[in-house]
Design a protein around this nucleic acid. Structure first.
Length: 826
RNA sequence: GCGAAAGUGGCGGAAUUGGUAGACGCGCAAGAUUCAGGAUCUUGUGGUCGCAAGGCCGUGGGGGUUCGAGUCCCCCCUUUCGCACCA
C-alpha cells in the first residue's frame, strides 16, 4: 500500500497489537481495588463459525468503554472467557468426527485471534473456559451444596423434550412450542429430572429488580412478567364422588358465587381418577392423550380452540352451596396455580366462551345495572358493578378491599385461603448430552442415590467416548464412566449420566475471573467482595430472561451461603442492538447470521480498511442500543475520516505562528471534549464520533485557510487523538507516538474542558408593551459582551421589536440567563 | 388482546432536553485529478416559488398549551419488540 492517500493500517495495527500483548497492557493486579471498575462482556460460545461484524459490535463497544474508563483513571478489569459447553460441539463430533473438546479449543484459538485483530484489550491472565474440569468441578461443588439445602432435587415430571436435540429443555428455552435452538416442535415427556428450586426465590428476584436502576426497563419488565406473580386465593371444592376436594386457584375469589363449573387440566391427577371410573373411559383416555401431545400454544394470534369433556361428576361450590359439573379442558394449564380452575363465565372471557360453547350455566355476581342478567351479557364483566345474590356480600362493589373480605371469609369458613402464585417454574438443569458438567451423584442398589463426596470432585468427563448420533446420551454408553463404586458402601454403583444445562456454567462465571486459578474453592470471597458486583455488563437482549435470571438466582444463593456480600451480580446492564443486513437468501433485511448468508467478515474488512475503520464505523452506525443496518458503502466514510486525520497530522507544521481565529478553534476544541465526554457517559458513541469528525474538519479547514496558530492546531490535534482513542486505538497511538509523545496514549489522562471557554450565553429579551409581556426572545452567543450585543442586534426578531437606540442603552450582563427589559416604542 | 419502545431529507441518524430542525456520515450532482475504471480532493444537496435577494411549506395525522413545540398535553394512525388461554 504505497498510495499516499492511505496510511498503512496493516503495519500500524500489527505493531500496536503486538505491543499491547507484549506489555500485557490490560492485565490488572486484583489485590488492589482502589478505584476499581469491573466491566464485562457476556462470554461467547466458541462455535465453529468465525465471528462477523455483528458480533463485533458487542466487543468493540466494550473495548471502547474499557479504554475510555481507563483514561478516566479507573482501575478497570475487563476479562474474557469461553462459555464452552454446549450442543454444537457434540453435533460437530457426530458430523465430522472431531472430539468436542478438540473442536472447542480450536475454535477458542480462532476467536481469540479475532479479538486480537480488532484491537480489543482483555486481561487474558484471567481467562476461563467452562469446559475444563478446573472450572466445572465448581458447578458440581455448588450442586452438592444445593442438594444439601434441598435447593436441588430430582423429580419425575412432564418436561419439554426436543426430539432433534435429544434432550430436555428448560421452560425458558421453549419458544412458541419449539426448541429455541433448532426449531423442532417440543413434545411433553414424563422423565426423572434434576431441578434447581428457583421458585423459592421468586419474591426476592422480583423485589431485587427495584434495586437495579442501571438496568434497561425493558429487561426488568420481561423478568417481572416471567416471574409472573399474582395474588389471589385457593378455594376447595368438595368432590363427594371421590371423597376428596379439588383445590382451584383464582385471582378473583370475589366471584366465587358465580362459579358454575370446575375445569381440571387434562394432566391433573383427579382427571385421571375420574376418567378411570367414567363409562366412556377409553375414548376419554384417548382424548386426554391427544391433548397432552398437542402444543397448547398456537403459532401466532388466536388461542387454540377450546375443547373439553364432562367428567360426569359434580363438585360443590362452597360459597353458593350448589352442585357444579366437573370438566376437563385444554385451556387449563397443568403447571399454573393448582392445575384446576373454577369456571366463572359471567366474569371471565375464557370461561364465558367455554360456557357458551358447551351450554353451561352463567351466573352473575356483579351487576352493572340492577336489571343486568346473565343472558344479556355480551362479554364477561371483568371489574364493574355491585354484588347481588351473594350473601353476605350483597351491595359491595369491585375493589381490592372486596377481594380481601372474600379471602377472610373463605379462611374463616375453612373453604380456602389467600395465596400468591408465580408463573416461574423450577429450573430444569438436566440434559441428556455428553458435552456438559456431569451431575455428581451415583446410584447404588443398596444406598440409593448418593452424592459424590467433595474430595472426589471433579467427576470428569471421559475423553474416550463414541459419538454416533444414535439416540441417547453418549455418556451413558461409556462403561468407564458409568461403572463406579458407591462412595458410601463401596459396592458397584452407576453414575448419573445427565449433565448440566450450560446456563449453570454461566450463572457464576463472573466470580471465577477474580480467582481463576484457585483450585481450593469456587472463587475467593474476599476478591469477590472487593471487585464484584460487575459494574457494567454488556450483552444482547436475548439473555434478558434465561442467563440474567439464573445468574441473579445463583447470586442470591451464594449470598445466603455467606460467600458474597451482595445480592445482585450486575449493577449496570447494557443491551446492544443487533446488526442487520439484506439477505439474498430471504430477500429481507435481517439479523446478520451465517444461516441467512448476510454476514460481513471482519477478516476481509480489516484486510482492506483496517480494524480502526471497522471500529469507527460500527460505533458510528447508530445508537448502540438500537438495531442497525450494515451498509457496505458507508464503511468508506469511516475510512476516509481516519485517512484525513492522518494527512492532517502531516500538515500541522504548515500552521502560522500567530493567527486570527484561535479563539474559535479553541472554543470548538473544548466544546468537543465536553460533547464526547457526555456522549460516552451515555453510551452515545455515534454522536461522539460525529463530534470528532466535526472537530477534525474544523482543524483541517483552519490549516487550509491558515486561520489558527501552530500552538492551537497542535493542541487541537492532540485532543482529537485522545478523544478518538477509544474508538480507533491503533491509528491514534501511532500518530501520538509520531508526534513525539513518550507515554502511550491509552495511559494519558482524559482531557478536560474549560466551561468558560465554551459557554454560549442564552440571553432572554423580554419585550414589554405598556407593562404587558409581549414577547420573549432568546439570543445565543459567546460569553462576550460585544458579541452578545452584536448577536442581539443581528437578530431579526429583535429588530421587529426594538430600535437600535434602545438596544444600545440596554445593559447586557454575561451569564446564564440575562433579562434585558425594555419597552417597545409604537 | 396486554405491555414497552419508536415514527425527522433518497438512506443511517443529530438536535446542549421548550429556543437558528436536518449536525455527522452515506448516497446523489457538478468540477479537479486520471488513458479508463476505481480511489482521492473541492463545492453543492429538505421541498417549493424565484435570475437573484429572498419568500412560503416542512419532524406520521388532527387538535391544544406557549412569544416560541421534533421536544409538553389530548385524540387517532403506523411500525418494531416482548408476553400471550397464567384463571
Amino acid at each position: 500500500m504505497n498510495n499516499p492517500d492511505h496510511y498503512d493500517h496493516k503495519a500500524v495495527e500489527a505493531k500496536w497489537q503486538e505491543r499491547w500483548e507484549k506489555q500485557r497492557t490490560a492485565e490488572v493486579d486484583l489485590r488492589h481495588a482502589q478505584g476499581k471498575f469491573y466491566m464485562l462482556n457476556m462470554f461467547p460460545y466458541p462455535s465453529g463459525d468465525r465471528l462477523h461484524v455483528g458480533h463485533g459490535r458487542n466487543y468493540i463497544l466494550g473495548d471502547a468503554l474499557y479504554r475510555y474508563l481507563r483514561m478516566r483513571g479507573k482501575r478497570v478489569l475487563n476479562p474474557m472467557g469461553w462459555d464452552a459447553f454446549g450442543l454444537p460441539a457434540e453435533n460437530a463430533a457426530i458430523q465430522r468426527g472431531v472430539h468436542p473438546s478438540d473442536w472447542t479449543f480450536n475454535n477458542i484459538r480462532v476467536m481469540k485471534e479475532q479479538f486480537r485483530r480488532w484491537g480489543i484489550l482483555y486481561d487474558w491472565s484471567k481467562e476461563i473456559a467452562s469446559c475444563v474440569p478446573e472450572y466445572y468441578r465448581w458447578n458440581q461443588w455448588l450442586f452438592l451444596r444445593l442438594l444439601e439445602k434441598g435447593l436441588a432435587y430430582k423429580k419425575k415430571a412432564p418436561v419439554n423434550w426436543c426430539p432433534s436435540c435429544q434432550t430436555v429443555l428448560a421452560n425458558e428455552q421453549v419458544e412458541e412450542g419449539r426448541c429455541e435452538r433448532c426449531g423442532s416442535e417440543v413434545v411433553q415427556k414424563d422423565l426423572e429430572q434434576w431441578f434447581y428450586r428457583i421458585t423459592d426465590f421468586a419474591d426476592r428476584l422480583l423485589a431485587g429488580l427495584d434495586d437495579l436502576p442501571g438496568w434497561p426497563e425493558k429487561v426488568k419488565i420481561m423478568q417481572r412478567n416471567w416471574i409472573g406473580r399474582s395474588e389471589g386465593a385457593e378455594i376447595d371444592f368438595p368432590l363427594p364422588a371421590l371423597e376428596e376436594k379439588v383445590t382451584v386457584f383464582t385471582t378473583r375469589p370475589d366471584t366465587v358465587h358465580g362459579a358454575t363449573f370446575l375445569v381440571l387440566a387434562p394432566e391433573h391427577p383427579v382427571t385421571a381418577a375420574l376418567v378411570a371410573r367414567h363409562p366412556e373411559r377409553e375414548a376419554l383416555e384417548r382424548w386426554v392423550e391427544q391433548v397432552r401431545n398437542t402444543p397448547r400454544i398456537q403459532r401466532e394470534g388466536e388461542d387454540t380452540p377450546k375443547e373439553g369433556r364432562d367428567l360426569g361428576v359434580k363438585a360443590i361450590n362452597p360459597a353458593s352451596g350448589e352442585e357444579v359439573p366437573v370438566w376437563t379442558a385444554n385451556y387449563v394449564l397443568p403447571d399454573y396455580g393448582t392445575g384446576a380452575i373454577m369456571g366463572v363465565p359471567a366474569h371471565d372471557e375464557r370461561d364465558l366462551a367455554f360456557a357458551r360453547q358447551e351450554g353451561l350455566p352463567v351466573r352473575l355476581v356483579y351487576h352493572r345495572t340492577p336489571d343486568e342478567t346473565a343472558d344479556s351479557l355480551v362479554e364477561a364483566n371483568q371489574h364493574e358493578g355491585t354484588i347481588a345474590n351473594a350473601p353476605p356480600f350483597d351491595g359491595l362493589t369491585s375493589s381490592e378491599e372486596t377481594v380481601k373480605k372474600f379471602i377472610a371469609w373463605l379462611e374463616e369458613k375453612g373453604w380456602g385461603r389467600g395465596k400468591v402464585t408465580y408463573r416461574l417454574r423450577d429450573w430444569l438443569i438436566s440434559r441428556q448430552r455428553y458435552w456438559g458438567t456431569p451431575i455428581p451423584v451415583v446410584y447404588c442398589e443398596r444406598c440409593g442415590m448418593v452424592p459424590v463426596p467433595d474430595d472426589q470432585l471433579p467427576v470428569a468427563l471421559p475423553y474416550d467416548v463414541e459419538f454416533t448420533g444414535r439416540e441417547g446420551n453418549p455418556l451413558s454408553r461409556s462403561k468407564a464412566f458409568v461403572e463406579t463404586t458407591c462412595p458410601r458402601c463401596g459396592k458397584p454403583a452407576r453414575r448419573e449420566t445427565d449433565t448440566m444445562d450450560t446456563f449453570v456454567d454461566s450463572s457464576w462465571y463472573y466470580l471465577r475471573y477474580l480467582s481463576p486459578k484457585d483450585d481450593t474453592r469456587m472463587f475467593a470471597p474476599e476478591m469477590a467482595n472487593k471487585w464484584a458486583p460487575v459494574d457494567q455488563y454488556i450483552g444482547g437482549v436475548e439473555h434478558a430472561i434465561l442467563h440474567l435470571l439464573y445468574a441473579r438466582f445463583v447470586c442470591k444463593v451464594l449470598h445466603d451461603f455467606g460467600m458474597v456480600a451482595f445480592e445482585e451480580p450486575f449493577t449496570n446492564l447494557f443491551n446492544q442492538g443487533m446488526i442487520t443486513r439484506f439477505s439474498e437468501k430471504t430477500g429481507r433485511v435481517e439479523k446478520m447470521s451465517k444461516r441467512r448468508g448476510n454476514t460481513v467478515s471482519p477478516d476481509e474488512l480489516i484486510e482492506r480498511f483496517g480494524a480502526d475503520t471497522e471500529r469507527v464505523y460500527t460505533l458510528f452506525i447508530g445508537p448502540p442500543e438500537r438495531e442497525a443496518e450494515w451498509s457496505d458503502e458507508a464503511v468508506a466514510g469511516a475510512y476516509r475520516f481516519l485517512n484525513r486525520l492522518w494527512r492532517t497530522a502531516e500538515k500541522l507544521d504548515e500552521a502560522p505562528p500567530n493567527a486570527p481565529s484561535d479563539r474559535e478553534l479553541e472554543r470548538q476544541r473544548h466544546a468537543t471534549i465536553q460533547r464526547v465526554t457526555h456522549s460516552l457517559e451515555r453510551f452515545s458513541f455515534n454522536t461522539a464520533v460525529a463530534a470528532l469528525m466535526e472537530l477534525s474538519n474544523a482543524l483541517a479547514r483552519a490549516l487550509e485557510e491558515q486561520t489558527a496558530s501552530r500552538l492551537v492546531c497542535d493542541e487541537t490535534f492532540d485532543t482529537l487523538l485522545q478523544l478518538l482513542h477509544p474508538m480507533a486505538p491503533h491509528v491514534t497511538e501511532e500518530l501520538w507516538e509520531r508526534r513525539g509523545h513518550l507515554e502511550n496514549l491509552l495511559d494519558t489522562e482524559w482531557p478536560s474542558y474549560d466551561e468558560a471557554k465554551i459557554r454560549r450565553v442564552r440571553i432572554t429579551l423580554v419585550v414589554q408593551v405598556d407593562g404587558k409581556l409581549r414577547d420573549r426572545i432568546e439570543v445565543l452567543a459567546d460569553a462576550d459582551e460585544a458579541e452578545v450585543r452584536a448577536a442581539a442586534l443581528a437578530s431579526d426578531r429583535v429588530r421587529e421589536h426594538l430600535t437600535g437606540r434602545e438596544l444600545a442603552k440596554a445593559v447586557v450582563v454575561p451569564g446564564r440567563l440575562v433579562n434585558l427589559v425594555t419597552r417597545k416604542t409604537a
